[in-house]
Amino acid sequence: MLRVVLGLMALDFTAMGWGSPMAMGAGMVGAMLSLTGLVGFCPMCALLGRKLHKGP
Score class of each variant (00 low, 15 high):
residue 5 V to L: 14
residue 15 A to P: 02
residue 28 M to Y: 06
residue 16 M to L: 11
residue 43 P to C: 01
residue 34 S to L: 15
residue 44 M to H: 02
residue 8 L to S: 08
residue 18 W to H: 08
residue 5 V to Q: 09
residue 36 T to K: 02
residue 1 M to G: 15
residue 2 L to V: 04
residue 17 G to F: 12
residue 7 G to C: 02
residue 22 M to G: 09
residue 39 V to P: 03
residue 25 G to D: 10
residue 28 M to C: 11
residue 25 G to L: 15
residue 38 L to K: 02
residue 42 C to Q: 00
residue 32 M to G: 03
residue 49 G to R: 11
residue 49 G to L: 05
residue 21 P to T: 07
residue 26 A to C: 14
residue 12 D to Q: 12
residue 30 G to D: 09
residue 24 M to S: 13
residue 16 M to I: 04
residue 27 G to V: 03
residue 17 G to K: 14
residue 49 G to I: 03
residue 55 G to K: 03
residue 23 A to Q: 00
residue 29 V to T: 10
residue 3 R to S: 03
residue 23 A to G: 01
residue 39 V to Y: 10
residue 11 L to M: 15
residue 26 A to R: 12
residue 48 L to D: 06
residue 28 M to F: 13
residue 31 A to H: 02
residue 53 H to E: 10
residue 53 H to F: 06
residue 40 G to Y: 06
residue 40 G to M: 10
residue 26 A to W: 15
residue 8 L to F: 06
residue 6 L to W: 13
residue 3 R to A: 03
residue 39 V to K: 11
residue 16 M to A: 12
residue 13 F to H: 08
residue 23 A to I: 00
residue 37 G to D: 02
residue 14 T to L: 15
residue 36 T to P: 00
residue 24 M to F: 14
residue 2 L to T: 04
residue 41 F to C: 02
residue 52 L to Q: 13
residue 36 T to C: 01
residue 20 S to I: 03
residue 55 G to C: 02
residue 52 L to I: 06
residue 9 M to D: 03
residue 45 C to L: 13
residue 50 R to F: 13
residue 47 L to G: 07
residue 42 C to M: 00
residue 6 L to Y: 11
residue 27 G to L: 04
residue 31 A to T: 11
residue 31 A to K: 03
residue 4 V to R: 11
residue 29 V to P: 01
residue 23 A to P: 00
residue 34 S to H: 03
residue 10 A to Q: 14
residue 30 G to Q: 10
residue 51 K to F: 03
residue 54 K to L: 15
residue 24 M to A: 15
residue 46 A to E: 14
residue 52 L to K: 14
residue 48 L to W: 07
residue 53 H to D: 12
residue 42 C to P: 00
residue 42 C to S: 02
residue 17 G to A: 14
residue 50 R to N: 10
residue 4 V to F: 09
residue 2 L to N: 07
residue 47 L to R: 12
residue 40 G to K: 11
residue 30 G to V: 07
residue 51 K to W: 05
residue 8 L to H: 02
residue 37 G to K: 01
residue 36 T to G: 00
residue 18 W to S: 09
residue 35 L to Y: 10
residue 17 G to W: 10
residue 53 H to A: 09
